[in-house]
Structure formats: structure tokens, C-alpha cells
Simulated assay, not measured.
Amino acid sequence: MTDVPAGAVPLDRRAQLAAGLARTRERIARAAEAVGRSPDAVTMIAVTKTYPASDVLLLAGLGVREMGENRDQEAAPKAVEVAAGGADVRWHFVGQLQRNKARSVVGYADLVHSVDSVRLAGALAGAATRERDRPLSVLVQLSVDGDADRGGALAGSADADRGLDQVAAAIAGQDALRLAGLMAVAPLGWEPERAFARLAEVAQRLRVDHPGARLLSAGMSGDLEAAIAYGATHVRVGSALLGMRSTLR
């Protein structure tokens, strides 16, 4: 690829993104149809972490509206830049979130995927009460393998801060938040099918007490087909759509 000045966009970048988008949409359609689901039931989130705001604007021009970020330090200024560029997009915060970033995140995020503690739910609720005029939709991040040392709420746990039932109840009890469903990442060493079957099982139980928690955020570039087969409503796609960041100039 020919070098271009720092900050510039290669002339063929729009074509690259359009090709990645076409391939990804085809994968989603095939995966959904294989299990009798409508492709329209699956929302693709373009995970634009480490990619410039210019890519977000190009994707918006190609009809992509759902964008995902995992670090507030990058996401907050990018959201401002994209808004200044005139794009109407919805921001999904998909990474681990520190409580001291809650105020910033509620200012631009439409859906936070990674709530995994009662304390984080409380911080988001407090920030949303002060900063927003409508409830913030959130997902509880499930620890699929139950490893308390990694991110995610713990299904079946009595832990007052990290138990999944306790986190869900804390969210549901806040007027400033809306419990929308669950999110999960397949743990290293797990087959995606095993991980997403576990997620679907936990989601079914959660809906007994919280019937409105219908969203399932699961699946990334390498395993979106398995996630869709187990009911994912949102897939988070980065490299398959935007390419490997290290190869971009």
C-alpha cells in the first residue's frame, strides 16, 4: 500500500470498507438463514477501536449506524469528531468500564454492554440521572466460565457485587437505567458453541424475572456464526469489517 501523509485516508479506503461490509453482511445473512432466523434480527456493531474517526464517517456513508468502542479515552473525542462530521450514529460501549469513567460514557453511549457489578450499575445510574434526559440501556456482561478474576458477572453466585442476579436487580431497580439483556465473550480455550450455548441458557433464566431483557450481544469477527446460531441479536465486528489495524497506513 502506498504511504500517505499522517492523518490522511487512502484513496481506496472507502472501497476497502465497502468490501468488508459486503462480506460481513453476507456472513451474517448466511448464519441467520441457516438457523431459520431473519438477517434483520441481527444487528452488526462496527467495532472501531483504534480506527480513526474518518473510518467511522466512511462507514456511516455506507449505511452503518451502530459503532462500538472499548476505551473511553478514545471513544469520547471520537464521538465528538464524528458528530462534527455530520454522521448520525449510535455508540456502543463494549469494553471493561471503570466507575470513574461513567459520567463520560453516559454522555455519548446509547448502549453499554459491559456492566458486571452492582457498584458499576450504581455509578452509571448516578451519572445517567445527572447527565441524560432518558434512561441508559445496559447489558450485563456474563462471565461464561465463572472465573471471578476476569470481567463479567457470575451466574448463580451469592456475591453481593458480582452475582448476576444481584447486578440485574440493581439495574432494573434504577429509573435511569434499562436492563436490555446480556453480553458475553467466548473464553480462551472454549469452543464458541459451548460458550454461546451457556449464554443462551443463562439468558433464558434471566428472562423469567426480567422479560424485557431480550438482547444478546455475542460473537466477533471469528465466531459470529456460532453466536447467531445461539440467538445473538448483536454481533461486534472489528477486523473482518475494517481490516487488521497494523496493515493500515
Rank of each mutant, 00 (worst) to 15 (best):
G7E: 00
G7Y: 00
G7K: 02
V9D: 04
R14C: 04
A15I: 03
A15V: 12
G20N: 05
G20C: 06
L21M: 11
E26T: 09
R27C: 11
I28F: 01
I28D: 00
I28H: 01
A29T: 14
R30M: 12
R30F: 10
E33M: 11
E33P: 03
A34V: 02
G36R: 12
R37Y: 04
R37A: 10
R37V: 00
M44D: 09
M44Q: 08
K49I: 00
T50D: 13
P52V: 03
A53G: 13
A53P: 10
D55Q: 04
L57K: 01
L58T: 01
V64M: 03
R65K: 15
R65S: 13
M67E: 10
M67H: 11
G68S: 06
N70C: 07
A75R: 04
V82C: 00
V82L: 01
A83L: 15
H92S: 08
G95S: 10
G95V: 11
Q96I: 09
Q96E: 09
L97W: 01
K101H: 04
R103Q: 14
V105A: 04
V106P: 06
V106Q: 08
Y108L: 08
D110F: 10
V112Y: 12
S117R: 14
S117P: 01
L120W: 10
L124F: 05
A125C: 02
G126T: 05
A128S: 07
T129A: 15
E131G: 03
R134W: 05
V138I: 09
V140E: 10
Q141R: 10
Q141W: 06
S143W: 09
G146R: 02
G146K: 01
D147Y: 13
A148K: 10
D149Q: 15
R150Y: 08
L154A: 09
G156V: 08
D159E: 12
D161I: 04
D161H: 13
R162H: 11
L164T: 09
D165C: 06
Q166M: 13
V167Y: 07
A170M: 09
G173L: 05
G173D: 14
D175V: 06
A176D: 03
L177D: 07
L177W: 11
L179M: 01
L179D: 00
A180R: 04
G181S: 00
L182M: 11
M183A: 07
A186P: 04
P187N: 12
E191F: 12
P192S: 12
P192Q: 11
A195K: 00
A197F: 09
R198Y: 04
E201Q: 15
V202Q: 01
V202T: 10
V202L: 03
Q204F: 10
R205L: 08
R205C: 02
R205T: 11
L206F: 02
V208L: 12
G212Q: 13
L216I: 09
S217F: 12
G219V: 07
M220D: 02
D223T: 06
L224I: 05
E225T: 11
Y230T: 13
Y230H: 15
Y230E: 14
Y230G: 08
G231S: 04
A232Q: 08
A232T: 07
T233R: 05
T233V: 06
H234L: 13
S239K: 09
L241G: 04
L242V: 06
G243M: 05
R245S: 07
S246V: 14
S246D: 15
